[in-house]
């Protein structure tokens, strides 16, 4: 089956960069320590409810989000598509009997899933070794969590893919990319959990797909959100995914009408 082959190819593509993986893991761990100490100190000093977070669930939030950070495309949302539009290599993508999105999405999914192995799992291990056991009991959080993570990896890729497609009109998308990276990372709940946002900001975040890229999978995987709420998280993720799929297809269709590949 073609799709599976593409996912596997992305998986293997990412496996070529072993040293980069180690470097990424080291960075994830350092920032994990920093975030964990800041947030736990804030929790200790807090007199309020702290959105229901306990020491354990806060540690789970920090370390699971650090673990997912390599797999979801958030802080530096650069994609091959963006580069290819800029250089004109996108012409080659249009020579293939698949949609522009399918050709890239499946491989991106494979790359993301591979990244979970060398960067995700060790980050969680480092976290549990330093702050104690925070993983949930039972099977459900892991099963639903796996689905949620796949949706987040695909969704975050799609967001970056749509930004990259703006290159059909803008050519240079570095500025847009940087803005997207900052806004998406913040609203995804990397710096502060979305539930600790003031009400108006939480409302704003809910109007974007960004929380579904990080906060949602962390909630489901850490067992903070269970049962019907977990299913509702998955449904929201799937809804945003579908919306972004349609947007990506629309942009690709319009972009091709606008495409100018001159020379070579």
């Amino acid at each position: 089956m073609g799709t599976w082959q593409l996912v596997r190819a992305g998986f293997r593509q990412q496996s070529q960069y072993r040293l980069a993986m180690v470097a990424g893991l080291a960075t994830n761990c350092v920032f994990g320590f920093i975030r964990a100490s800041v947030l736990l100190a804030a929790l200790d000093a807090s007199t309020g409810a702290f959105a229901g977070y306990t020491r354990e669930s806060l540690a789970a939030y920090v370390w699971i989000s650090q673990a997912l950070l390599g797999a979801v495309l958030l802080m530096v949302p650069t994609t091959a598509v963006g580069e290819r539009i800029k250089t004109g290599d996108i012409a080659v993508d249009f020579l293939r009997p698949v949609s522009l999105l399918a050709g890239h999405l499946w491989m991106a999914l494979g790359r993301g899933l591979f990244t979970l192995l060398p960067r995700g799992v060790p980050a969680v291990v480092v976290g549990t070794l330093t702050v104690g056991w925070f993983l949930p009991g039972g099977v459900a959080p892991y099963l639903l969590g796996a689905v949620s993570v796949v949706l987040a990896v695909a969704g975050s890729y799609l967001g970056a893919h749509c930004v990259a497609l703006a290159g059909f009109w803008l050519v240079e998308t570095r500025g847009l990319n940087a803005l997207y990276g900052i806004v998406a990372t913040f609203l995804a709940g990397l710096f502060v959990p979305v539930d600790l946002f003031p009400g108006w900001l939480r409302g704003l975040a809910a109007l974007t797909p960004f929380p579904t890229f990080l906060q949602y999978p962390v909630d489901v995987l850490s067992g903070r959100v269970v049962g019907l709420d977990a299913w509702s998280h998955l449904a929201t993720q799937a809804g945003w995914l579908l919306g972004m799929l349609l947007l990506a297809q629309l942009l690709a269709t319009l972009g091709r009408r606008h495409l100018e590949v001159q020379g070579g």
Partner: peptide
């Protein structure tokens, strides 16, 4: 322009193209 995947072994490009 290249239609091969530059960071993968050549044989894999053919696997991917066959899949596509």
């Amino acid at each position: 322009r290249s239609q091969l995947w530059w960071d993968l072994p050549l044989a894999e490009s053919y696997d991917i193209l066959a899949a596509i």
